[in-house]
């Protein structure tokens, strides 16, 4: 008890973000991600609900089964993009700012590639069906589009971190709460993509 007390009352503890328990920011981000995850769960739940209420042919007649190649490439780009973030976060915890910068930059490139691939996916799909074709089209574009928006927000956050870290005096071994929070968000965006890949691209083949 008294040990932790001096640890907490020392001047260092008062001015830094050394890991003494979870921070309020961490909890805030985790709760935010929890509610966002529920949002995606509702969207994907709606997909399955409409699908099973619709009848035997899915996608509905006139729309071909989604092809897998590009989404798998997208997955291969997006899922590993969490690794540089982890690496960067571990780096800044040890005070290595270059790792933070390099890691974030790598993720930025991977994320942007993902969005570019999604754009090409859309140009192809739009020739076949749109959001207003039928409920399948609505689900397809709204779910993937909403996820794409999340990737974009995540990338904005990462660029923002990168900008702050380039300025200097922002992050270091004592202050990296924001890095950790953005990292949590980015991992979340990644994991959701796996669920979307399964729902939109894999499940119609089952």
């Amino acid at each position: 008890m008294s040990g932790s007390m001096t640890a907490a009352t020392g001047t260092e503890a008062l001015t830094t973000e050394m890991p003494v328990g979870r921070s309020t920011g961490w909890w805030g981000m985790v709760m935010f991600v929890a509610t966002e995850a529920t949002l995606f769960a509702c969207l994907l739940g709606s997909y399955f609900y409409l699908r099973f209420q619709y009848g035997p042919t899915w996608p509905p007649p006139g729309i071909t089964e989604p092809t897998l190649l590009r989404p798998l490439v997208m997955t291969a780009v997006l899922l590993p993009s969490s690794l540089p973030v982890i690496w960067a976060e571990h780096g800044i915890r040890r005070g290595e700012r270059w790792r933070l910068r390099a890691g974030l930059a790598t993720t930025l490139v991977l994320g942007a590639t993902f969005l570019a691939l999604q754009a090409s996916e859309y140009t192809e799909k739009l020739r076949e069906f749109t959001m207003t074709t039928n409920a399948y089209g609505s689900l397809f574009y709204v779910i993937t589009g909403f996820h794409g928006l999340h990737v974009l927000i995540g990338l904005t956050m990462i660029s923002w971190l990168l900008a702050a870290s380039l300025r200097g005096g922002s992050f270091g071994s004592h202050r990296h709460d924001r890095v950790r929070n953005v990292a949590i968000y980015w991992h979340f965006v990644d994991v959701v993509w796996a669920a979307i890949l399964f729902t939109i691209y894999l499940s119609p083949r089952l």
Binding site: T35, E36, T38, L39, A41, C42, L43, S46, Y49, L50, Q53, Y54, P60, M131, T132, T133, N134, A135, Y136, G137, S138, L139, V142
Partner: peptide
């Protein structure tokens, strides 16, 4: 989130012509 998703879909149906709730076009 369930309410938000619901309302977002309603707005999209109303304004941008999606068919989440339209039984004629696969909605429910």
């Amino acid at each position: 989130p369930a309410l938000n998703v619901d309302n977002a879909m309603l707005f999209l149906d109303r304004r941008f012509g999606t068919h989440f709730f339209d039984p004629e076009a696969g909605g429910n």
